[in-house]
Computed example of a mutant assay.
Amino acid sequence: MDATTKNKIAEFICGDLKEKHPIYRSSFYLSKFFQEVGINEVHDGSSRNPWTSNLINRLSGVDLQKVIIRLASPKLYGGDREKIQLALRTLNEILMVEGLKISIEGVNPILSKIVPNYNFEETSKEDISKFEFLPPPNFDFLNFEFGLAEILKKRWVEINNCIENDSPIGAIILMGSVLEGILLGMFQKNPRIANSAKNVPKQKDGSVKYFADWTLNEMIDVAHEIGWIQLDVKKFSHVLRDFRNVVHPYHQLSNNFNPDIDTCKISWMVIQASFNDIERWIGSSKSNV
């Protein structure tokens, strides 16, 4: 690894730039960080950046990998999403020149090899490289039936894989399935609230439909009526639902619709906003108990 890259990692650890580094580390916390990853070093009171840079440049490849993995770990930041995203963004800016990329699978950082691309004329690939991978929401917080949260986490990672491989249609179809999974899980967990909605979908005989038979359109409308998602999220969720229909080739043909990286950005934020609204509703309902 180039010395310049190592020096940037050292700067990241020290954390002097708030806009690029999630944590500032004083002398005590520098020592604590290295000891947490199994490197028995104690800061000697000298200037922090040169000391850290010297140490990073002396590390073996194995120890350096431990440092990078720890710097990307959501556990290091206590699950703080803003800090996690900042860490991933800055680390990947540093590591790209070395042909490396750090991503999150579940809560585990994964260091993988990539082909670095600094051909700025290739605008489409440049746009994809700028796409910021959002770590999965805390699906476990929703307390769905066993196994569903894990499926949603894996699909979240698959969405990122589709985007990185320039497959926006695959990404959008998966996003629609994640939104549907979140809403269906909420309905199954809260049947009394869901079935009390005025616009609850019904069979021809007037009986309420089983949740599994609800369309995504019906799920979105009911979720808004009972206060799980706000009006803006409802409207954007319907847009994602329509995007998701590109799973049908004739729908794509008739609408002359060719989704791209910008479509993915919009759609991914819709899922995140839906989760945030539902998370707030759950928190509010608990506080009122």
Rank of each mutant, 00 (worst) to 15 (best):
D205H: 13
D205F: 14
D205Q: 13
D205K: 15
D205G: 14
D205M: 14
G206F: 06
G206Y: 08
G206S: 11
G206C: 08
S207W: 08
S207I: 05
S207R: 15
S207G: 15
S207L: 13
S207D: 14
S207K: 15
S207Y: 08
V208W: 02
V208M: 13
V208F: 10
V208L: 15
V208I: 15
K209I: 07
K209G: 08
K209W: 04
K209M: 13
K209D: 10
K209Y: 07
Y210T: 11
Y210N: 15
Y210V: 11
Y210F: 14
Y210Q: 14
Y210E: 15
F211L: 08
F211Q: 10
F211V: 08
F211N: 10
F211A: 09
A212L: 12
A212K: 15
A212P: 02
A212D: 14
D213P: 04
D213K: 12
D213H: 09
W214Q: 05
W214Y: 12
T215I: 02
T215P: 00
T215S: 15
T215V: 02
T215G: 05
L216Q: 04
L216T: 06
L216W: 03
L216H: 02
L216E: 04
N217W: 09
N217H: 13
N217I: 06
N217R: 08
N217L: 08
N217V: 05
N217G: 11
N217C: 02
N217K: 10
E218K: 00
E218W: 00
E218V: 00
E218G: 06
E218M: 03
E218Y: 01
E218S: 10
E218N: 11
E218I: 03
E218F: 01
M219R: 10
M219S: 04
M219H: 01
M219C: 06
I220C: 03
I220K: 05
I220N: 02
D221T: 10
D221P: 00
D221I: 07
D221N: 12
V222L: 03
V222I: 12
V222E: 01
V222A: 01
A223Q: 01
A223N: 03
A223F: 03
A223M: 02
A223W: 00
H224T: 03
H224W: 07
H224F: 12
H224Y: 11
H224I: 01
E225S: 07
E225M: 06
E225C: 07
E225Y: 03
E225T: 02
E225F: 05
I226P: 04
I226K: 05
I226H: 06
I226R: 05
I226E: 06
G227D: 07
G227M: 09
G227C: 09
W228E: 02
W228H: 06
W228P: 04
W228S: 01
I229M: 01
I229S: 00
I229E: 03
Q230I: 07
Q230K: 11
Q230H: 09
Q230W: 02
Q230T: 11
Q230E: 14
L231D: 10
L231F: 05
L231A: 13
L231V: 12
D232M: 10
D232Q: 14
D232E: 14
D232I: 08
D232K: 12
D232R: 13
D232N: 13
V233G: 04
V233T: 15
V233P: 01
V233N: 12
V233S: 13
V233E: 01
V233F: 03
K234Y: 06
K234P: 06
K234I: 03
K234D: 02
K234T: 03
K235Q: 13
K235W: 06
F236W: 15
F236L: 15
F236S: 15
F236Q: 14
F236M: 15
